[in-house]
Nucleic acid binder design. Structure first.
Lengths: 167, 167
DNA sequence: GAGCCCCTTGAAGTCCGCTTGAAGTCCACG
DNA sequence: CGTGGACTTCAAGCGGACTTCAAGGGGCTC
């Protein structure tokens, strides 16, 4: 798995889709799908087969990371478009993208911490009182901010109608 | 609209699906869907309309929270089955469920922290070296452990073809 | 008891992120 | 030069989580 020198890439550092799949951990079908979405690009051999540069590994890694941060593939594509296609990105280029992720990650961590705290609270209180259960109130409050706060699962929490009820 | 005391619930604390939707932040269609999956249950009026107890709010909140922690609705149902249907759960009952979540949440937080650290590292290093880029290597390592660690987004990393590369 | 909004069902549709299948082509090894 | 495994395309399928639609019925207020 390591880039063992000597076993080497098939030819001048270009990867077949199979090799890319193996190294990226994605199925070839997924890689083709990514390509169809414009997330990655390949050159073609005379016979029409895809050949990927090693930089594609970086792009794929980027996409996977983006997904973990809650981005859709389309959003990932947009972010990727801000990075150079085949060149290694400069520190500055990274900076723009990475810092925007930082906040996204921080947000998610904070969200999870909050959930964790609520859960802990629930254990403590035994949820004896519906009106005081944090979990319960979390949902009830969510009602106030529109259709749901499932940002981990779907896109975009905001956009809700005005708050409905004060407890 | 608000749960203003005095305006009160329509009748002995039973909620219509619309009221439940409003308070839980979910669409009525989603609630019916949840019911079809056995996540929540309703009594019926003589005319066949659903009436939910207030405890259903708790169940819905639970499901939403479960989703945030990366559970599928089916997994949420399983977890819910361990809690009493209409009764307020005891501290012990919560304990079992909540602690299992704790670890799940902690895992996710750790995962995000790791990603964040990698990203920071990338900024620092400017990703000058592919072979030293943490992000890149993250993907490469993922290849060793099968098709992906996207637990936040889809279910179950396993089930793919067996790991391709030797660790 | 009229009116109006909320409710009912079941089937079908949507979106996302892929996977699978069929039928055919390429290319590296021996 | 032959062969078999890896590759090609395109279309269709899948699973999860819902939403939408059509046609009809309920229930609370005035």
């Amino acid at each position: 798995m390591t880039a063992a020198p000597g076993h080497g890439p098939t030819r001048h550092d270009l990867l077949t889709i199979g090799q890319l799949a193996e190294r990226s951990g994605l199925a070839t079908s997924a890689l083709r799908y990514y390509e169809s979405l414009g997330l990655i690009h390949a050159t073609r051999t005379a016979g029409g087969q895809r050949r990927y540069t090693r930089a594609t590994l970086r792009r794929v890694a980027f996409v996977r990371a983006a997904q973990r941060v809650g981005l859709s593939l389309d959003e990932a594509r947009v972010a990727l478009d801000r990075l150079p296609e085949h060149r290694v990105p400069t520190g500055t280029e990274w900076d723009a993208v990475a810092t925007s992720w930082q906040s996204r990650i921080d947000e998610q961590i904070a969200e999870l911490e909050r959930l964790k705290a609520k859960l802990t609270g629930c254990i403590g209180c035994g949820c004896l009182s519906l009106s005081r259960c944090a979990l319960y109130n979390a949902a009830d409050r969510a009602a106030a901010s529109g259709p749901g706060a499932r940002y981990l699962l779907t896109r975009d929490p905001g956009t809700g109608p005005e708050p409905v009820g004060a407890p």
